[in-house]
């Protein structure tokens, strides 16, 4: 129809791929910051804070990301809050990632053996000192493999942002296909590009997990 796949199309796809990476970074950084707060809130000594954060996690985990994206873009627009596709996608992904990372990290913090908390308490460290100097350094070791693994999910899930008109890799592929109508070739390129982004991370995550498995017995004495 509209000619053949040329360098301009590939450049356009490349630009989309960069936005996919950019949106993933926004989701990871924003979601990481909010998720860290969620993780701490989930184990707060205050019951109300624990309940509120647990509700947040349940609410987000029980809602499809697509619905959150629609709410953020079309929903807010309908009540008079016009947001750009980038802002809507960035905010929606941040909320989504925060719920999952918060829950992953809560588990990692709590999997630091209880005697470690007690030893820190017995040394008169404050709650903040216990967390920062004893628990978190150990929790981060435990959290690294599942966090890197989850980053793969984030990258793939950014493709959903195409539905609110954000031109990332998936959307740029659709646009190119609309002019060329070569779906097999184009979507194959898209698939390979996603794979090229995700596979190194998957490998890295597996490597980290294997290394963790070796180090686990050393993590804390019986």
């Amino acid at each position: 129809m509209g000619g053949h796949l040329n360098i301009n199309h590939l450049m356009f796809l490349g630009q989309g791929a960069l936005w996919t990476i950019g949106l993933s970074a926004i989701a990871l950084i924003g979601g990481g910051i909010v998720g860290f707060v969620i993780a701490l809130a989930r184990i707060s000594p205050l019951k109300s804070v624990r309940i509120a954060s647990a509700l947040y996690v349940q609410l987000i985990q029980g809602t499809p990301l697509l619905v959150i994206l629609f709410l953020g873009y079309f929903g807010l627009a309908a009540i008079g809050l016009q947001v750009s596709p980038l802002a809507a996608a960035g905010a929606s992904l941040t909320l989504y990632v925060a719920a999952y990372l918060g829950e992953i990290w809560r588990g990692c913090i709590q999997s630091v053996p209880k005697p470690q908390w007690e030893a820190a308490e017995g040394l008169a460290l404050s709650r903040t000192q216990r967390m920062m100097k004893v628990i978190l350094p150990q929790a981060i070791r435990i959290a690294t493999p599942p966090t890197v693994g989850f980053m793969v999910q984030i990258i793939k899930n950014t493709s959903l942002a195409s539905v609110v008109g954000f031109v990332e890799l998936m959307r740029s592929g659709q646009i190119v296909n609309n002019s060329l109508f070569e779906p097999f070739a184009i979507y194959a390129i898209i698939a390979v590009t996603y794979f090229a982004m995700c596979y190194p991370l998957s490998l890295f995550s597996q490597r980290l997990e294997r290394r963790m498995g070796r180090g686990r017995s050393n993590l804390a004495p019986a």
Binding site: G122, Q138, A220, P221
Partner: peptide, 17 residues
């Protein structure tokens, strides 16, 4: 209280990191 009291546990509980 815990500045005045030292406690040593069965499982040592040294900080591994």
């Amino acid at each position: 209280l815990r500045q005045d009291v030292g406690i040593v546990f069965q499982s040592y509980n040294l900080f591994p990191h």
